[in-house]
Design a protein around this nucleic acid. Structure first.
Length: 662
DNA sequence: GCCGTTTTCGGCCCGACTGTTTTCAGTCG
């Protein structure tokens, strides 16, 4: 079976290759959009493909793309894609990933027979790259610089690692005088499971008389310990590469891949260190006036697709939206051009008039405008809204939409209010390990930590016997452990300690303890740990069997994936969700940033089907409790409310539900 | 390639920045 993610990947590659061959940009964009749509789909595409009408009902999918989707589901690929793969050298895709190089430049290189990064390095070394159109000294130097860091800069970074980096920057910069507000934006603020680069917004007072303030903030930003390369440094925008630590908590660091650079090329790039460079992440800093903070925050939080929808909505309402604010569209001044000796302004109609763009209007004697254009405020145009996100959304007739929901998945059609689950709503942890297996805390230490964080319930769920590496408990040890949990529970006030187990789901779907022992436990979290490369059919059967077991409360990290590391199982998720509904089993969102499993789109599908979610930290040590924010972010990306999450229920309701399976 | 409170054709979001140019193309988010 072809998964939605695989279909999206095929479409994405097709769009990229189309772009390189110079296809119409809107056609390219339509394919990129379709890929994202498929990726975010909650139903299985393989099932939808039976009926073409259900495909064209998806936003952005027309008749032609529907045919392509059917073809991909049936064959795993596209005939057109295979043709392009033959035509377009694979190495061009590597060149395209170099920062600063887009489809037009790469196409020009292809025409000059530069078809991989090694050839590009040679063309830089022998000066032939300079002969290409629009390739001057500076452009070539920039490409050379980017190439030097290309091998080491990770394309994506785990949410938890990126959040820690952002925290470092926010702490350092918020301490500077004159910083009115500071806030990470981008995919980090949206809680995406992996992060490309980190955006940080800083607001300074509009009426500041300190002309060097922004410059000083940027200077501090670029000189923080850990910054290994400054890409750009200015008073409005700065970008740096920041060194990432290799450690992944209880997962071992990724082994360094040896450089494949040939000796000859190393010689021509001799000024760069030859040893494998440290993995890094790009961090962008934007500095802007406080009066634009709301609209800028929306702009830089994205997603890009969500922003496009907002701007379309703005235009339809007679406004135009940009990072400086929401403006009446009739005031729009777009481009300065000396064509025909005057200034050209593209005017769109005001509200109530025709929806067609009126076209270019030439002003013969417009006063000279400074270049680059000042923000509209400084040209005497007042924004209708800009200081806060709430007021911009309100002007557009929308409730404030949480950042996690800004993915162009229909959020603009929701009436609101958006009362999504928050970290403060979570009052129970139902998946935690002690020193009895591979945890670092005793039962009481674990309970005290949970109490400190305001929880009413903590479940002790050590590993079962098959997880021998993790110190899984044989039945006799488990019975003694249950007794120890009961005793600890009698000694502590203010929190309930439950006796549970994280029971292995064995390869065939059976559980790692017999039914009699399982019945003695207050909480059973059943999780797959081994045989994580099973084929989808076997994985589906395995998990369905565990879900239908009458003693199971929660399926822990259902796919066993490790982000950027291991794909894990690919079961037929719609079937698992239907079974979870039928047997009243909760599906876990494991909050560790290496897992975030269930992923957001599957959790969304579960909620739509009426399946309960459990947001657990899978604690092994104190700091693991801090990962709750990432599990909650994933749940919020699935539009989960407190009612959807059993950890947010009051104690009596939760305990009654757990007891119903005994 | 998609789409329609006027559209089945002609639109498709917006601005900053950079470098290469003498008025603008490419890239990025």
């Amino acid at each position: 079976m072809v998964s939605n993610a695989e279909v999206a990947k095929v479409l994405e590659e097709f769009a990229t290759l189309l772009e390189l061959t110079g296809a119409d940009g809107f056609r390219v964009n339509a394919h990129h959009r379709a890929a994202r749509g498929v990726e975010g789909l909650t139903q299985s595409l393989a099932a939808l493909a039976e009926d073409k009408a259900s495909l064209t009902a998806i936003d952005g999918i027309g008749p032609k793309l529907a045919d392509k989707l059917v073809e991909i589901v049936r064959t795993g690929t596209l005939a057109e894609l295979e043709t392009l793969r033959v035509r377009v050298p694979a190495g061009l895709l590597d060149i395209l990933r170099v920062p600063g190089l887009g489809p037009k430049s790469v196409k020009a290189m292809w025409d000059a027979n530069i078809t991989n990064t090694d050839a590009l390095k040679r063309a830089i070394a022998d000066g032939s790259l300079l002969k290409l159109p629009r390739m001057g000294e500076k452009a070539v130097a920039k490409i050379k610089d980017s190439l030097a860091f290309f091998d080491s800069s990770a394309t994506r970074t785990h949410l938890g690692k990126a959040a820690a980096v952002a925290h470092t920057f926010v702490t350092a910069i918020s301490a500077l005088p004159g910083v009115a507000r500071i806030q990470p934006a981008g995919s980090l603020r949206r809680g995406k499971e992996t992060i490309g680069d980190i955006d940080i917004l800083v607001a300074i007072a509009d009426d500041t008389t300190d002309r060097d303030l922004a410059t000083r903030i940027a200077a501090r930003f670029c000189s923080l310990p850990g910054v290994i390369h400054v890409i750009a440094q200015g008073s409005g925008k700065s970008s740096v590469l920041y060194a990432l630590e290799g450690g992944l908590g209880r997962w071992k660091p990724t082994p360094q891949v040896a450089s494949t650079k040939s000796a000859e090329l190393t010689a021509s790039f001799g000024s760069q260190p030859a040893a494998p460079r440290q993995p890094s992440i790009q961090v962008d800093l934007r500095i802007l006036p406080e009066s634009s903070f709301g609209s800028a925050l929306m702009y830089f939080t994205g997603s890009k697709e969500h922003n496009v929808r907002l701007r379309e909505r703005s235009l339809a309402m007679g406004y135009t939206l940009n990072e400086w604010g929401l403006f009446p569209v009739s005031e729009r001044t777009v481009k300065v051009s000396k064509k025909a000796g005057g200034f050209k302004a593209k005017l769109a109609p005001a509200s109530g008039s025709t929806n067609k763009v009126a076209g270019d209007v030439i002003y013969a004697d417009s006063p000279a405008l400074p270049a680059p254009l000042l923000p509209p405020q400084d040209r005497g145009v007042k924004p209708l809204a800009s200081a806060s996100e709430e007021e911009v959304f309100a002007m557009l007739g929308l409730p404030w939409i949480p950042p996690e929901a800004r993915e162009d998945r229909g959020e603009l059609n929701e009436a609101g209010p958006w009362d999504l689950v928050t970290v403060a709503d979570i009052r129970a942890e139902l998946h935690a390990h002690t020193t009895a297996s591979d945890g670092l805390l005793s039962i009481l230490e674990l309970a005290e930590e949970a109490l400190r964080r305001g929880f009413h319930t903590i479940a002790v769920t050590d590993h079962s016997q098959s997880s021998s590496i993790a110190g899984g408990l044989k039945p006799d040890r488990l019975r003694a452990h249950i007794a120890a949990v009961r005793e600890a529970n009698s000694k502590i006030n203010g929190i309930t300690i439950l006796a549970g187990s994280e029971v292995d789901i064995l390869t065939d779907g059976s559980l790692d303890y017999d039914d009699k022992l399982l019945a003695e436990l207050d909480v059973v979290v059943a999780s797959p740990h081994a045989a994580l490369s099973q084929d989808p059919a076997a994985a589906t059967a395995r998990l369905l069997r565990a879900i239908s077991h009458p003693r199971v409360h929660i399926i822990g990290h259902p796919t066993g994936r490790l982000l950027l590391r291991r794909a894990g199982l690919s079961p037929d998720m719609p079937r698992l969700i239907a079974a979870a509904k039928e047997h009243d089993v909760a599906l876990e969102i494991n909050s560790h940033w290496m897992r975030l499993d269930l992923r957001d789109t599957h959790a969304r599908a579960a909620i739509l089907a009426g399946v309960k979610l459990a947001i657990n930290c899978d604690d092994h040590e104190r700091s693991d409790f801090d990962n709750l924010q990432f599990g909650v972010a994933t749940a919020r990306r699935a539009w989960a409310t407190p009612a959807d999450c059993i950890n947010a229920w009051p104690a009596e309701k939760l305990h009654r539900w757990l007891q119903s399976k005994r």
